[in-house]
Amino acid sequence: MEQMAGKQSIQFARAPHILSGASMVGKKEGEGPLGAYFDKIGEEDGFFGMNSWEEAESTLQKEAVSMALAKAGIEKWQLRTIYTGDLLAQSIASSFGIMGFHTPIYGLYGACSTMGEALSLASMAVAGGYGDYVAAVTSSHFASAEKEFRFPLGYGNQRPLSATWTVTGGGACILGEKGGKARITGITTGKIVDYGLKDSLNMGACMAPAACDTIYQNLMDFNRMPEDYDKIITGDLGYVGQEILLDLLKERGFDISKQHMDCGIEIYDQKTQDTHAGGSGCGCSAVTFAAYILPKLEKGEWKRILFVPTGALLSKVSYNEGKSVPGIAQGVVVEHC
């Protein structure tokens, strides 16, 4: 059966179910507006009993997958494949975090859009009959990301108001052919979009054009209007990127202001937590989806949402060589069963 829809989308003939979602976050995230929804909140120092920031981030993935498996009622040996990624060079948080499950993996990199990429590929695997149970997991850690992309924490550099705060968190979902209360009915794979912006401390502006492109293409490919979704949820545009996204879509003839929600805005209290433009990182959309968005779909409070994690595709090398910061956004349509 033909499953391709429009230019960039897939509409699944057999929509895979999301059997469970689980999340672990750091202390700062636990003190935010969504704190009561997370499954586990780590210790104050952010090391979670480990010796380095990178090992701490690996713990986030290991704990998230373990909790998601327990919620789904399956054992780790039943997992066919794990789709995983993070922000660190060579995806070391994923490699060391997932290694102990002894499960085949695909390592992914979509920057902060990685949870959208993981859910997209996991849903294709289940829908295509390539796995009874598969997992999608991502993570980020404030300290490991600062070390990887910016400055050592001890440097004490000042952050501009356009900057976002990397979420310390890991989120995982288990997908299967049936048995869940929410299912992935379609995906819209994003393109790399580059408006030539070079400010790595304003990633919301860098990613907003890609979010606009993917949301617009999703509406075109599925012949939908914004009101056909209860929510259109971006990953981590923050307050700056949200304004740009709304303006760009209005230029294309769509007003999503009533439906739009951004994980980076929801996860922190801007006034009391000093997070400037909001949250970011692979873990931002992952933990918000697993802890807050998925339960609303399972309960039927929302019938259909478009989940659009967004990523800024830069590295220390590209930034220091004066390159721009391209963006990408991966669209996932999730519906109540």
Rank of each mutant, 00 (worst) to 15 (best):
L201E: 15
L201R: 13
A135H: 06
D132E: 15
C173L: 14
N223G: 00
S144M: 02
T234C: 10
V134G: 07
I192W: 08
M203W: 07
R159L: 13
T188Q: 13
T234R: 06
A208E: 08
V134A: 07
V126Q: 15
V126N: 15
D230H: 09
E243G: 14
Q242T: 14
K181G: 07
E177Y: 08
S162C: 09
I233P: 06
P209W: 10
L219S: 03
G131Q: 12
H141V: 05
T189P: 11
K178E: 15
C212L: 01
D228G: 00
D221K: 03
K198N: 13
D228Y: 01
F142G: 02
T138I: 04
T234P: 12
V134W: 05
Y216S: 09
L197S: 14
I184R: 09
M207L: 10
D230L: 00
A205Q: 13
M220Q: 13
T166E: 03
L153F: 01
T185E: 11
Y229H: 02
D194V: 01
D132G: 15
P152R: 01
Y216K: 03
L197V: 11
G180V: 07
Y216G: 03
F149L: 01
K198D: 11
E146G: 01
V193K: 14
G196R: 09
S140I: 04
A135I: 05
G129I: 11
T164I: 09
F142H: 09
L219D: 03
V240I: 12
Y239E: 12
T166Y: 05
A125V: 02
F151K: 04
M207W: 10
A205M: 12
C173D: 08
S162A: 07
L175S: 13
G186C: 02
K147W: 02
K147H: 04
D199R: 07
W165E: 06
D194Y: 10
P152C: 02
F222S: 03
D132P: 10
D228N: 04
A172N: 06
G238I: 03
P152L: 01
E148L: 04
G238K: 03
D230W: 02
T164R: 14
T185D: 05
I187R: 10
N218P: 03
G190D: 10
D230Y: 05
V126I: 15
M225E: 05
C173S: 15
G131P: 01
A205C: 07
A208Y: 10
L197P: 08
G131D: 13
D228P: 00
I233Q: 02
S200G: 14
F142K: 06
W165G: 00
V134T: 06
D132L: 10
P226Y: 03
E243V: 11
E177H: 14
Y133Q: 09
N223E: 05
V167W: 08
R150A: 08
K178G: 13
T185R: 11
G156H: 04
I192A: 09
M220S: 04
G171H: 12
R159Q: 15
K181S: 07
A127I: 11
F142E: 07
A163F: 14
G179D: 09
T168W: 01
A145K: 00
D213H: 12
W165A: 06
G129N: 11
K181I: 00
G154M: 01
Y216Q: 03
T166L: 01
G179M: 06
T214E: 10
I184H: 11
W165R: 04
L161T: 11
V126M: 15
E177C: 12
T188I: 12
S162Y: 05
D132Y: 09
